[in-house]
Design a protein around this nucleic acid. Structure first.
Length: 478
RNA sequence: GGCGGCGUACCCAAGUGGUAAGGGAGCAGUCUGCAAAACUGCGAUGCAGCGGUUCAAAUCCGCUCGCCGCCUCCA
C-alpha cells in the first residue's frame, strides 16, 4: 500500500485513487518568462519519480503539467524586449523542454498552455458567476472568497486573520480585499481575448482549474507543486473548482520543498538564482538528479558544490562496482535472476517508495547492496569459490535495472557513463596509451622512478591509472 | 502578529516507540613495486536544550533556544 503525505490533511494517508487502477495527476508547471532554475528541476524530478513509480506499481497514470504562457511577467519582458508575449513564451518553453530533457525528466502525457485553453477558462468563469461565486466590475471578474466556506482549509489559514492588503495595495472595487481576479480587463499593450465581460485575459489561478478539469475531470487524484504554491495559488484553485463543480477537487495534495543556496531561498532580489543550464555546465545531469533524490522531496535541500561533488563521487562508486560485476563475473551476471532473491532485494526499495516516495532511503538501500556485492566479489576472488555470487549478482542487477528506471539514475550503459567523463581530460587517448605503454616497459625493467613519473604526469592531466591483473587501465579522475 | 516546518557525527542524509541506514571526508590496516579500486577496523553512550509519558523515546507530549518558509509574484 502506497502512503502519501497529503497537505490538506497534514499527514500521511493510504493512497487510494478514485478509479481502481487509474491515477490522474496534475502538477503546476513553469511560468515561461525566464530560464528555469534548479528549483524547477527539483519539482520536475520529484514528480517525475512519483509518476514513474506509480506506473511501476501498475497504475495507469495520466499526468498533466501545464505551461503558464499568459502572465504579467511575460508581458513585461515582451514590452522590454520589443517582442510579442508569444515569442517570449515560446522561447522559454523551448528552454524548459531542453532542460527537462537534459535531466531525463519524462514527458507528461499532456502539456497544456493557457493560450490554448481560453474557451474552457471563459466558460469556467461564467459558471462561477452563474453560481454566485463571482462578480463583474468594469470588465474584471472577481472570486468572492467569503462565499466559499472552506476557504483556507488547504493552507490552514483563518480568513479573519489574513490581514488583507497588509502587503499589497487594495483594489477598492473589490467587495472584499481577499477576493482575487478570475479575469482581468486588458490594458494597453497587453494581449487580450474576447469574453462576455469585454476584452481581457485570465487571472493566474483559473487557468489550472480549467486545464485540469478539461483533461482530467472534476476530481484529481494528485495535484502537486512547490510548497510556495499552497497559498494563494492552490487554495484559490480549490475554491474555484469546488465552487464550480460541487465535488471534491483533489484527493491528495502534494508539495515539494525548496532548493536553497547557502540556506537561503533563491530569489531574483538576492541574485542567487541558479539556472539548470548553469548547473549542467559544472555537473552531470545524473549527479544533479541524484542530488535531488538523495533527500526526501518534502525537505528543504541546500545546493552547494560540496553536495554535488558528493553526488558525482557516489555515481562513480556505483558505476565502478557495476563495471566490476560485468567484467569480473560476466557469466554470473548474465544468469536469470532467482525470483525469491530478486524479491528480497527489491522489497526494501518498494517499501521505501511506498512510504511517501522515500527516494533517499531507496538510494541508501542500493549503496548498502553495492557494499555487499563488493565484499562478496572480494571473497570470491580470494577463495576462488563464486557460489555465493550466484543467486545474488543477477538479482542485484535486476534491482539496479528496476530502481534505475524509476529513479532515473544508475541506468546508463557503462560505456556512456565513462565516456561522458572523457570531455574533462586534457590529453588525447592515443597519448595516454603511448604513455601507458612506456610506463609498462619501465615497470618491466623495474624502473620505478620513470613509472611513477608517468603516473604523476597523467594524474596532472586528470587521468588515474589502475594496474590490474589483466593489464593497466585508465580512468578520468573525478 | 497568524500559520507551517526544521535542528541526527567534520559535511550530506535515512530513520515507521524496541535500542542510531547509507554516501563523502579523515585515520589505521589488507592488497599493490608504488598507487588506484575494493575490503576490514576506528568514529554520535547519543539524535538543539530542559522536563514529562512509557518496561522502552531521535521517534509521543510540554516548555526553551536557534534556523527557515508561507501570509505578495514565486518550484
Amino acid at each position: 500500500m502506497i502512503r502519501v503525505y497529503n497537505t490538506l490533511k497534514g499527514e500521511k494517508e493510504d493512497f487510494i485513487p478514485q478509479k481502481n487502477n487509474e491515477v490522474r495527476m496534475y502538477v503546476c508547471g513553469p511560468t515561461v518568462y525566464d530560464l528555469s532554475h534548479i528549483g524547477h528541476a527539483r519539482s520536475a524530478v520529484a514528480f517525475d519519480g512519483i509518476y514513474r513509480y506509480l506506473k511501476y506499481r501498475g497504475y495507469k497514470v495520466i499526468y498533466v503539467r501545464n505551461y503558464t504562457d499568459v502572465d504579467d511577467k511575460i508581458i513585461k519582458k515582451a514590452n522590454e524586449q520589443g517582442a510579442s508575449p508569444k515569442e517570449i513564451a515560446d522561447r522559454y518553453i523551448k528552454a524548459f523542454d531542453e532542460d527537462m530533457d537534459a535531466l531525463g525528466v519524462s514527458l507528461p502525457d499532456f502539456r497544456p498552455k493557457v493560450t490554448e485553453t481560453m474557451d474552457e477558462i471563459i466558460r469556467f468563469v461564467q459558471t462561477l458567476i452563474d453560481k454566485g461565486y463571482a462578480y463583474v466590475v468594469d470588465g474584471d471578474v472577481y472570486y468572492s472568497v467569503r462565499k466559499f466556506e472552506k476557504y483556507g482549509a488547504l493552507s490552514k489559514k483563518n480568513i479573519e486573520e489574513l490581514e488583507a492588503g497588509a502587503r499589497v495595495e487594495v483594489d477598492e472595487r473589490k467587495k472584499d480585499p481577499l477576493d482575487f481576479a478570475l479575469w482581468k480587463a486588458s490594458k494597453e499593450n497587453e494581449p487580450w481575448w474576447e469574453s462576455p465581460w469585454g476584452k481581457g485575459r485570465p487571472g493566474w489561478h483559473i487557468e489550472c482549474s480549467a486545464m485540469n478539469r478539461r483533461l482530467l475531470g472534476d476530481t484529481l487524484d494528485i495535484h502537486g507543486g512547490g510548497k510556495d504554491l499552497i497559498f494563494p495559488h492552490h487554495e484559490n484553485e480549490m475554491a474555484q473548482s469546488e465552487a464550480a463543480t460541487g465535488k471534491p477537487f483533489v484527493r491528495y495534495w502534494m508539495h515539494n520543498g525548496f532548493v536553497n543556496i547557502n540556506q537561503e531561498k533563491m530569489s531574483k532580489s538576492l541574485g542567487n538564482i541558479l539556472t539548470i543550464k548553469d548547473a549542467l555546465k559544472n555537473y552531470s545531469a545524473e549527479a544533479i538528479r541524484l542530488f535531488l533524490l538523495s533527500s526526501h522531496y518534502r525537505s528543504p535541500i541546500d545546493y552547494s558544490p560540496d553536495v554535488l561533488h558528493d553526488a558525482e563521487t557516489s555515481l562513480d562508486r556505483f558505476y565502478t562496482t557495476k563495471e566490476r560485476m560485468e567484467k569480473e563475473w560476466p557469466e554470473i551476471v548474465k544468469k536469470k535472476a532467482d525470483k525469491n532473491e530478486k524479491g528480497r532485494l527489491l522489497q526494501p526499495f518498494i517499501d521505501a517508495m511506498d512510504d511517501d516516495f522515500n527516494t533517499a532511503f531507496a538510494v541508501g538501500h542500493i549503496f548498502q547492496e553495492l557494499h555487499k556485492a563488493n565484499r562478496l566479489m572480494d571473497e570470491a576472488g580470494e577463495t576462488g569459490n563464486s557460489s555465493a555470487l550466484i543467486p545474488y549478482l543477477p538479482a542485484l542487477y535486476e534491482l539496479f535495472k528496476e530502481a534505475g528506471s524509476v529513479l532515473g539514475v544508475f541506468n546508463k550503459p557503462l560505456e556512456d557513463y565513462f565516456d561522458a567523463k572523457k570531455k574533462y581530460i586534457k590529453i588525447s587517448e592515443d597519448e595516454i596509451k603511448r604513455l601507458i605503454n612506456e610506463r609498462n616497459n619501465a615497470r618491466r625493467s623495474k624502473n620505478w622512478a620513470r613509472a611513477d613519473e608517468i603516473r604523476a604526469e597523467l594524474e596532472d592531466k586528470g587521468i588515474i591509472l589502475e594496474d590490474r591483473s589483466d593489464g593497466t587501465i585508465w580512468k578520468v579522475k573525478r
